[in-house]
Design a binder for these strands. Structure first.
Lengths: 137, 137
DNA sequence: CTCTGTGCAAACTCTTTGCACTACC
DNA sequence: GGTAGTGCAAAGAGTTTGCACAGAG
């Protein structure tokens, strides 16, 4: 699978087995993963990897816009591929984070607000998800 | 100033000097404060208060919708009065959090998305603020 | 009087840092 | 070969927890 390697190079990210493995974790469809989850998954491929390295790679990837850091939950960060365009929903009961597709808001296409240059936007919804509200009644 | 006391009671929050002091910290215009900042300000009025109590009060106030927890910055939470309606902007250079007034997006008035009940929304912009970009050139 | 809130300190979680070693380019 | 990445362990920040005492309703 040369594809991931190309993408890393396109983003001017130095290629290592650890980085390919971290990037590869996100290949299986849409997902939001914590550093710890990524660490566990990557260990299957690169057993010697350390959690510190995972954090270093995640920091590198987010600064190069390969990944987005999602801070919707109040304890840990989640990460996802940047190629997805949506908001996020956190259920206060089951703590699951769900993607929310919505009609694109015109403000999000703006390059600046009140003179401040916009590089990124995150929209977070909080509430109770469909599954949890149906369980209750 | 009986006003704060009334508001606390209206929100079914038991009134104590500590709680009045924490609530009072937000009286001076729009502000986003961290737990530590609130702790420091409240100590002026209630010297014996502890940081743990501040956290307990903040948790109580957010659950009763007296305050909003803002998790835009990746290290600590900020808190603000709920009566303000806006998004937030974090400057990646000076780390300041700014309010962003914008045309209200129609999706925000929805009570649910894809079957999930919405109780709260936070819109976070990331980038470089006006002050920092003017300093650079 | 009872139950919740408070103060204090220790514990916990997630993340960052320092340093020696490794390996991309 | 030089610079950036890695592994490990320890440190750090912010927040939570447990418990005994105090105070609101």
């Amino acid at each position: 699978m040369k594809r991931s390697e190309q993408i890393l190079r396109q983003h001017k990210v130095k290629v290592t087995p650890q980085r390919l493995a971290v990037y590869g974790v996100f290949n299986n469809g849409k997902c939001h993963l914590s550093a710890e989850e990524i660490f566990q998954k990557v260990k299957a491929q690169v057993p010697a990897i350390s959690l510190g390295t995972v954090y270093a790679i995640l920091e590198n990837f987010t600064s190069k816009h390969l990944l987005n850091e999602i801070k919707i939950d109040f304890s840990r960060s989640l990460y996802e591929r940047t190629d997805e365009d949506h908001h996020h929903f956190l259920c206060r009961l089951c703590r699951k984070v769900l993607d929310v597709e919505m009609p694109r808001c015109p403000v999000l296409d703006r390059k600046s607000v009140q003179g401040h240059a916009i590089e990124n936007f995150q929209g977070y919804f909080y509430g109770v998800c469909k599954d949890c509200s149906s369980k209750k009644r």
